[in-house]
């Protein structure tokens, strides 16, 4: 508190030393810088994706399969025969990612990935609610919201595992796939895998913080700033998903 009131001094003394000119603690500032560098890493992957995607022709025009229409078994083979999945053309994401758990024989393009997006956005909300409860020093509330965030993260990881299993089950590999150019599946695995690993790390961090909250570590420390720092990371993971979703599924 004393730190923040000091910082409303004028511009000249703010950079004079002795206090953070950024008006945030060292740990939070370093988290921001780490996230910036991590954003560069993800950008390089998305730039590679954009470049490769644009060096291939657009997906073939789909006039056969409408959303919610019935599809037979061996959908991928049928699409190969119909000329919608060809090696030279980038495949249309709506024809590749059209499965939903427990629902068979229906063309449900992007439904599952939209659900994943909602799960991640919602877990971001519970995270920010945990941070807000931390400002009020409400240990129990922080713990409950942290638990909800962990459940959201785990649910997202489960969804991704299912998505990968389905994708691999249809013949997608790092070195080739039945949908289109070889780099299509390779890029999918690398980018969503790298993001999924971030989600996994975030869940691990959230579990550690959750245990600390339950043990009263931050209650003793007098502030819940650690929840805020891990929260920054968690929101970043959500932010990256917004762009993965845009680039991989919508464009």
């Amino acid at each position: 508190m004393a730190n923040t009131t000091n910082l409303s001094t004028d511009k000249k003394t703010a950079w004079g030393g002795g206090k953070s000119p950024f008006s945030v603690s060292y740990g939070k500032l370093m988290m921001w810088i780490f996230l910036l560098s991590d954003a560069f890493t993800f950008s390089s992957l998305l730039i590679a994706y954009g470049f490769i995607r644009y060096s291939f022709p657009s997906p073939m025009e789909n006039t056969i399969v409408k959303p919610l229409s019935h599809v037979a078994e061996h959908f991928t083979e049928a699409m190969n025969k119909a000329g919608l999945f060809v090696q030279d053309h980038w495949p249309a994401p709506e024809l590749v990612f059209n499965h939903f758990p427990f629902i068979h024989g229906l063309h449900l393009p992007l439904f599952f990935v939209s659900l994943m997006t909602f799960i991640l956005i919602f877990s971001s909300v519970t995270m920010v609610l945990a941070v807000e409860a931390g400002h009020r020093m409400q240990k129990k509330e922080v713990a409950n919201y942290m638990l909800l965030t962990i459940i959201g993260g785990a649910a997202f990881l489960g969804c991704q595992a299912w998505e990968w299993t389905t994708f691999i089950g249809e013949g997608a590999r790092l070195y080739g796939n039945p949908f289109g150019p070889r780099s299509f599946a390779a890029l999918f695995f690398i980018v969503t895998g790298f993001h999924g690993f971030h989600v996994f790390s975030g869940v691990v961090l959230n579990v550690i913080i959750y245990i600390n909250v339950l043990n009263g570590t931050y209650e003793k420390r007098g502030h819940y700033e650690m929840v805020e720092k891990v929260g920054l990371y968690w929101h970043f993971v959500d932010l990256v998903w917004v762009f993965v979703f845009t680039f991989f599924y919508l464009i």
Binding site: S124, V128, G231, L232, H235, L239, V242
Partner: peptide, 10 residues
């Protein structure tokens, strides 16, 4: 969307 996440949540 990024602006809302970074601006408000972060």
């Amino acid at each position: 969307k990024a602006w809302y996440i970074v601006g408000v949540f972060m």
